[in-house]
Structures are given as C-alpha cells and as structure tokens.
Simulated scan of single mutants.
Amino acid sequence: MKFGFDIDDTLIDLRAYAFALYNKKLGKNITIDAFQALQRVEIHELFGLTDTEGSAMWNSSLEEIYFMDCPIFEQALETLQTLNQQGHDIYYITSRPKQYCAQSQQWMRAQGFPIKEGHFFCGMQDAEKVAIIKNLALDVYVDDKPAVLETLQDIETKVILKNQSYNEHVTLPRLHHWHEFDNIIKV
C-alpha cells in the first residue's frame, strides 16, 4: 500500500513545541489549557501579537522550531517504521518551505523516520499538496489540516485527520493517538 503523511502537527508536535518556545522567548507563562483551546493553527494571539508580529516571530524562529528538539507524537515513528518493514511505500508531503526541504529530510532521518529517495515533497500550498496526493494515488493520507483532507473527498484515498484543537469541527476519520492507526485503516 501507499501511505502519505503530513509532518508538522501530524507526525511531530510542532505547534506545542513552538508554544513552549514562545513562552520562553517572550518571558510569558501562558497555560497549556489556553493553547489547547485555540481554534486556529496560528499561536501568536495567545501572546498578544498581531498577525504581522506573529508571522515575523514564526519566520524568525523556523530553524529553531523545525530542527531542535521538537517531539514526535507517541507511536508515530514506530507506526511508520512498521509500515516500512511491512514493505509499504511511505511518502511525506509537507508545506514546509522549500529552502528547508533537505534539512527537514536530514532531521527526519536522524529521528529514525524511513525516507526513500523521491518520497519527500516540500514547499507546497494546499492545492499543490492535493495534486501530489492524487498523482501518487495514495491508499491512505494523514494530515491535520481540514482544507487539504476535505478536498480529497472525491478520490479513492482514505483520508485521516490527525486530531488538533483547530480541526475538531470537521467530521472525518480522526486519529487522536497513533496507537489507533492500525484500527482506523482497517475500517
């Protein structure tokens, strides 16, 4: 089978890591409960930043957010390693900027994620992600972003939504914890 995965907030807990980093950098003590109640992807409003200020903070922190100690969701790595050992094809399809593509692959390999040549796609807007998913004719695709998954409703690919506070309003097969993955794909 062919499996596709988004990276940020699907395989790794990027937003929560960035949230902790922002707390530290800005000398704040915003609670995790406030973070978990956010109904949008962007986290800057918790820190009193405008969209412009938030964008600047995010962009100036990208290398630190992407490549330091961002935690992998529990069982995500083991799930992908098992799929790889079983002979399945694994594709990574991320909106991370193209200039971080090689470094992202390196970081993911260093964490133990199985990556084959030609199976890693970076720097796309949502419409480009959808086109790649369709062209690859994936059997299963997992992402946290409803805008991508809802666009894939008319194809054979089984879409799975990685649960996040900002996507709870969406009705799609939902992955709360990676240990549930096998049961979800069998349904």
Rank of each mutant, 00 (worst) to 15 (best):
Ile115Val: 03
Gln86His: 13
Glu74His: 05
Thr82His: 09
Pro97Asn: 14
Tyr92Lys: 04
Thr94Asp: 15
Ala110Thr: 10
Arg96Thr: 08
Leu77Phe: 03
Ile93Pro: 09
His88Leu: 07
Gln86Ser: 06
Gly87Tyr: 03
Gly118Arg: 00
Gly112His: 00
Ala102Trp: 15
Gln85Pro: 00
Ala102Glu: 15
Gln106Leu: 13
Asn84Leu: 07
Gly87Cys: 03
Phe113Asn: 07
Glu78Met: 02
Glu74Val: 07
Gln99Pro: 03
Gln103Arg: 13
Arg109Thr: 10
Ser104Cys: 01
His88Trp: 01
Leu77Asp: 15
Leu80Lys: 04
Asp89Gln: 09
Tyr91Thr: 01
Phe113Arg: 03
Leu83Cys: 09
Cys101Phe: 09
Glu117Met: 06
Leu80Val: 01
Glu78Ser: 08
Gln106Glu: 14
Leu83Asp: 14
Ala102Tyr: 15
Arg109Tyr: 08
Ala110Ile: 00
His119Ser: 03
His88Ser: 03
Met108Tyr: 05
Gln85Cys: 04
Leu77Gln: 04
Lys98Ser: 14
Arg109Pro: 01
Gln86Ala: 13
Phe73Val: 09
Gly87Met: 01
Met108Phe: 07
Arg96Phe: 05
Pro114Thr: 06
Tyr91His: 14
Ile93Gly: 09
Gly112Asn: 06
Pro114Asn: 01
Gln103Val: 14
Asp89Asn: 10
Gln103Asn: 05
His88Pro: 13
Gln111Glu: 11
Gln105Val: 14
Tyr92Trp: 07
Cys101Met: 07
His119Met: 01
Asp89Pro: 06
Thr79His: 04
Glu74Met: 08
Leu80Gln: 04
Gln103Trp: 12
His88Met: 02
Leu77Glu: 10
Gly112Leu: 03
Pro97Met: 11
Gln105Lys: 08
Gln106Ala: 12
Thr79Cys: 05
Asp89Ala: 09
His88Phe: 03
His119Ile: 00
Glu78Lys: 06
Tyr92Gln: 03
Ile90Asn: 09
Lys116Pro: 05
Leu83Trp: 07
Asn84Met: 01
His88Gly: 10
Gln86Asp: 15
Asp89Phe: 00
Phe113Val: 00
Ser104His: 13
Ala102Ser: 11
Cys101Ser: 09
Lys116Asn: 12
His119Lys: 01
Thr94Phe: 15
Thr82Asp: 05
Ile90Ser: 12
Gln103Ala: 10
Pro114His: 08
Lys98His: 13
Ile115Ala: 02
Cys101Val: 08
Gln105Ala: 11
